[in-house]
Design a protein around this nucleic acid. Sequence first.
DNA 1: ACAGAACGTGAATACGTATTCACGAAAATG
DNA 2: CATTTTCGTGAATACGTATTCACGTTCTGT
Lengths: 334, 334
Amino acid sequence: MITMKELAALTGVSQPTVSRVLNGNTSVNPEVAKKVWDCAREHNYQPNMIARGLNGSQTCLLAVMVPNIANPFFADVIKAIEGTAEKAGYSILTFNSDYSLQKEEKCLRLLQQYRVDGLIAAPSRDDEEGTRHFGELTIPWRILTRCSDRMDSVYVSHEKAGAMVAAHLLQRGIQRFLFVGKEGDDKGLGFERGLRTGGVDTERQLTVIWEEDRERLSSRIAAYMSSFSDRAGIFASNDMEALLVLNILQRVGIPVPGRAALVGFDNTFISSQIQPGITSVNQPVEEMCRFVVEDLIRQIQKKEKKPHAVRHTEFAANLVVRASTDTGSCSGGK
Amino acid sequence: MITMKELAALTGVSQPTVSRVLNGNTSVNPEVAKKVWDCAREHNYQPNMIARGLNGSQTCLLAVMVPNIANPFFADVIKAIEGTAEKAGYSILTFNSDYSLQKEEKCLRLLQQYRVDGLIAAPSRDDEEGTRHFGELTIPWRILTRCSDRMDSVYVSHEKAGAMVAAHLLQRGIQRFLFVGKEGDDKGLGFERGLRTGGVDTERQLTVIWEEDRERLSSRIAAYMSSFSDRAGIFASNDMEALLVLNILQRVGIPVPGRAALVGFDNTFISSQIQPGITSVNQPVEEMCRFVVEDLIRQIQKKEKKPHAVRHTEFAANLVVRASTDTGSCSGGK
DNA sequence: ACAGAACGTGAATACGTATTCACGAAAATG
DNA sequence: CATTTTCGTGAATACGTATTCACGTTCTGT
């Protein structure tokens, strides 16, 4: 891998001149420039970003931290971020926090060691304790897909989305509801609020189920469904959970959407490719990522390190309605 | 972000001594060491990996290049690579080649500019033209999930896997076969070989269909299925295609596995979570990634830049049989 | 034709680290 | 006690780049 100094020796000029030719900031003698360019091409010169990063304080690296890369939603996020970052001349360092605060802190340490220019993170948790460590960061950063009072965030309101789902299910005439997700999840809270607004007695008509263990989750859901006989509206906290629920119901012989209307979250390819299609809350991933990357890069290049208030950028979610919530006959849709 | 020099000034020693304390290679006065450690902790010192990378020639960065991060299989790959790399003290730079040779070359250029210590790549194509640019790399690298004569590769034999699928379908008594994938794909070739071995007249009984456009692909598959009435064995080149095929068939009212037995590839979560479960070729992603990362890092640390022959490490694939190829009644299994 | 501006270029420097070298002091050896 | 070895440490250097500074040359304006 040839360096500027060697290039300079070969063409008989000084290293700074080579730098000037290759970066084209200041004017140089056209003849010299041509000679240098030719020589650089001939030897396939590749600038050393490490050295460049050490000198100026620009590494042109962005870090992306997500809880689980294998989740299709986050895979989409990473793809979208990589896409727009690449166009802007930035490369990305990917970190998997595995829903562990400890790993998250390790990632934060690491990405600071690499002097990345900025960070885009989807934290595992959005409470005080789960986000405190972000406060100590000295680099520009953005929170994606979550909303926190204390941090710059780009997100879709899970709370509103939950209410939207509630409205949709109520419109279908459903009277019994199940939320499959963690207690206290914004989606769940919004769902509850939406139901209440629609006149539902959530104490009696809404159930929340969550188990880390897939098997136990399955059996609890099955037990729930067999405890009554009218139609249920089930809201799963993401498409993967929705897929699991669908799987359970189909296995137990409960028709969807006939006996249960099912709604997922994230609108990943799963929900559209499956039969029946699953109604799902769509987040405008592409737009959000483009916005967050461009916004972050803008801040980086303006070098406005500190002085800016906490900003929240909320994107609108929309419900993509599919067969899983068809109003259809209550008698076991095909 | 405090530096060693500043730390040195604060503790009244020289910068090299700070370096020695923090890295612990050579012996230093215990009292001095303690003072330096305390000071480092107090100011939350983080080593500058950029500077470290510029000096020694170790960046502790690994590049990973895949054609499409959003494909669950590659998402699994990245997660597995990140996991073992992290344990070994390496971080990863993720690149998406988007199945474009041009982008692939750009990625290769980029990752060389960042002086990554090594590369793990899943190339878009495995022919001569599609892999030539790897030959010019000066850093250690490995090819994952593909096999090329000229390059170090860690893979599952797609050819053998295809034959395995053929054997499985033949065992189910099927006589008509469809491969959904690109002409010339190793999976398809192996599938054909396997069928021939089983006495199938592949000229007449095997069809290959591929279209980039989902709509046209759908209509061609539907047309194919309506051109005869006996049971078909369909082998899709990956789980996402298999899901698409299943979707088409279900929409047209063709029962799976009744009228068509379906086999996918990669054994992603999709194939197990869907109803009916899709029989799929499983690649031992976890093991392969662990092997390739550890092997690559071994080479990096031995600094054996050039001298080693092209090695191929083949992992065994296995078929995970699910409901989509149940031998069941030919009369439309529910 | 002369003062000053504009231009092209090289020397020097900084970025933060690891490493080599040399030097003095202390310890071990005879 | 003299001599060698070991140990702890600082000075110097290298890694590859971008930038600042200064210097000399050519161009512009009166």
